[in-house]
Design a protein around this nucleic acid. Structure first.
Lengths: 236, 236
DNA sequence: CATTGTCCTAATGTTGACATCAAGACATCG
DNA sequence: CGATGTCTTGATGTCAACATTAGGACAATG
């Protein structure tokens, strides 16, 4: 048994910097393609360049920013190809996470999922802040990964989590009504299947949930080239 | 078309340091559990602590070492739970990589796979250096991920690649004959399926390939506790 | 004797200065 | 006029000194 209380984490400035910059990106302060200069960030955040650098390295690992040797760091763009890549990986990851969580989830995990769904419904009933709704969406899936209890799987999830967050933010800009109309029902169904569904159905629905999100996002993207040959699946 | 030659990568000292330390771990110089002190490494590698630090951060992302705030960096241990986690994730990743590569692989990729299988056979016919054989095994799967052409998938693969390498090295220590007897055939079959197999069979065999490796490794691990309840799947 | 509190030390976290580099402006040459 | 070379500039890469911390040795205490 691992210790129940995981040691009150005292974090370093690098984590702090990473969180701040990530939030700034999500808030739109740094739009896709924007350059993140270390000196500028260091001054604005009141920390040294070294800490900023380490924080940016973490965001790079999350795929939220890109950088090369002596070539600076920039926020990723959202192209159709990027979306295809992320969602293809996410489908595989979510499928594994769901089936694993189906066996390993505790009562706390399951009730937290219900709570998150309830918060989504409340948020929609109220003003329905798009950003908050997206955060709840991500948190829901965070909880599934946590319930699965596979540290490596969670690490892999972290490599696309922030990108997904960015994609969702763009998605609600383009088709908020469509998103708002489906988000509660889809997540409620997933939560129910995690409680009492059979693994087969759960795995299928988890993948379909991802595919639904992917199509919704691609439809709203500027019709740039490179859609590749992925639309063959059709309807059944 | 992205530029055919990916720009002669001039790498920094951090990458260099990461490669050196990784190789030292694989060579057994730093056994599992060993502490990696920044000052010591900086002196031995002839670079600054900052570069070593950045390199160690990369190895942390690869899961090959673990570290906490103000608590140093140590090589990971190989417990049964770690093995279960890595192989569960790897099965999902390999499945996606194989089915994607089935559609996207170029002739170059496929012939390189054949070449790697041939090198394995040659290596076994000759002295059969265990470490080199493992390197070829990993390189084979690297090639499949490269053929799939999904950058995010490759990133996720990198988060377990080095751990897998370490596991394999331990596996050949415990059951080299068993490994040597199967490695060529299994990989040859995968290469063949990538050329002309149907996706369904390919996906199944890719998962079974991982499962075979997992069982082989677990059998050779010290019968330490914590095997969890993973083997009970049949009865309830 | 077990427990608690204090101190010490060896490591990591953080910083600002210095070295190096990529990319574009500009002049030069064919 | 286009191609090539150089030079400037603004950034990142690297470094060594300083600040902070975790963990253990050790004595005081009940």
């Amino acid at each position: 048994m691992s210790s129940a209380l995981p040691r009150a984490a005292r974090r370093g400035l690098a984590d702090e910097a990473a969180d701040l910059v990530r939030a700034a990106i999500f808030s739109g302060h740094f739009p896709p393609g924007a350059a993140l200069r270390e000196v500028e960030l260091a001054e604005r955040l009141g920390v040294s360049r070294g800490s900023v650098r380490e924080g940016l390295a973490r965001l790079t690992q999350e795929g939220l920013v890109r950088g090369g040797w002596h070539r600076g760091t920039t926020v990723i763009e959202v192209t159709a190809e990027d979306v295809q890549e992320v969602y293809a990986l996410r489908a595989a990851l979510d499928r594994l996470a769901a089936t694993t969580a189906r066996r390993a989830a505790t009562a706390e995990h399951l009730s937290r999922l219900d709570q998150l769904v309830a918060e989504m419904a409340t948020e929609i009933a109220a003003g329905s802040d798009a950003h908050r709704l997206v955060a709840l969406d991500i948190a829901f899936h965070d909880q599934i990964y946590a319930a699965a209890g596979n540290g490596r799987l969670t690490t892999a999830w972290r490599t696309i989590r922030s990108q997904l967050h960015l994609f969702h933010l763009r998605r609600v800009d383009a088709a908020y009504d469509h998103y708002r109309a489906r988000v509660v029902d889809e997540h409620r169904e997933l939560a129910a299947l995690l409680r009492s569904g059979d693994s087969r159905t759960l795995a299928r629905r988890a993948e379909e949930h991802v595919d639904s999100a992917r199509r919704s996002l691609l439809a709203g993207l500027p019709a740039c080239a490179g859609t590749k040959s992925a639309e063959a699946s059709g309807h059944h």
